[in-house]
Amino acid sequence: MWNWVISILSDPNTRWILLGCLLLGFSSGIIGSFTFLRRQSLMGDTLAHAALPGICIAFMLTETKSIALFLFGALIAGIVATFGISWITRFSRIKQDTAMGIVLTVFFGIGVVMLTRIQHSASGSQSGLDKYLFGQAASMVLTDVYVMGGVCLVLLVACLIWFKEFKLVSFDPGFARGMGLPVGVLEQLILLLTVIAVVAGIQAVGVVLVAALLVTPAAAARCWTDSLALMVLLAGLFGALSGAAGTIFSTFVPNLPTGPVTVLAATVLFAISTLFAPRRGLLARKLRSIQAKSTYMREEQATLQLSSTQPQTQKRGEM
């Protein structure tokens, strides 16, 4: 089997796809950690779904199929969506989860309507836009890998430079603002980095599933460590591992889509983490409670025996 894998990897096209998915998983995992800790896991999903109309409009305006243009459209749509969410939460009594639900479905609905129109038009049937729903990693070419590398570098550098600010804003935004940090700007920056990661991932994983790459590796990483720096790094590694596993499996087995398999690989990692992580895992917790119970029983028994052998002292103690 290993020979087979190596022979596949000798194909340069597959190597690019593998590298692209790896970089994509890594960068999504890193920025996803902050999204996850800020309890904005749904935000990634909203941004991804909102990207669809952006891609469609980019195509309708230019009538050309250019990845860079699509990404630009998706970025604009994502920014409009975040403004929509903050506008709804600020000017009505609707909470953020509901606002995200509204924006997600409205944008996706508009996107699907546009996509259907494009598919039925003469120029559109060849556009390959439908691939953006579930992604097609196989369509990645060398320039896409460069884009992934660039995105990965930008996210990594941003998280390194502003690590302490991102940490404080994620943990205690009120205190951060009291200290004079521009919390609003930093929150928008985290959001912008999330949009970039999501948009970069759409081609490979698709708008429907790309949010999983933000959330799942971060949730898995949280199980293993109580240090933010380690968690961010682990989330990146888990994401990269999922991307690699997705590519290899879909190349190995015919008719297996890369994006969904990548998401499934991340989910397997998450399942393993929640079950078997040393301190926060379900198994460890169960073991600890059994252990605590048995120690308690043993001590209880010991005191019982002690009191039966020394009935007089016990009696005196009670009085």
């Binding site: 800790l37 943990f171 200290m179």
Partner: peptide, 28 residues
Amino acid sequence: IGYVPQRESVDWDFPTHALDVVMMGRYG
């Protein structure tokens, strides 16, 4: 200015330890 927010205003399951939280007071 020093500020002590209400304790419930943050998520205490955040991945960090006590010393690290106190160091946040020096970020400014």
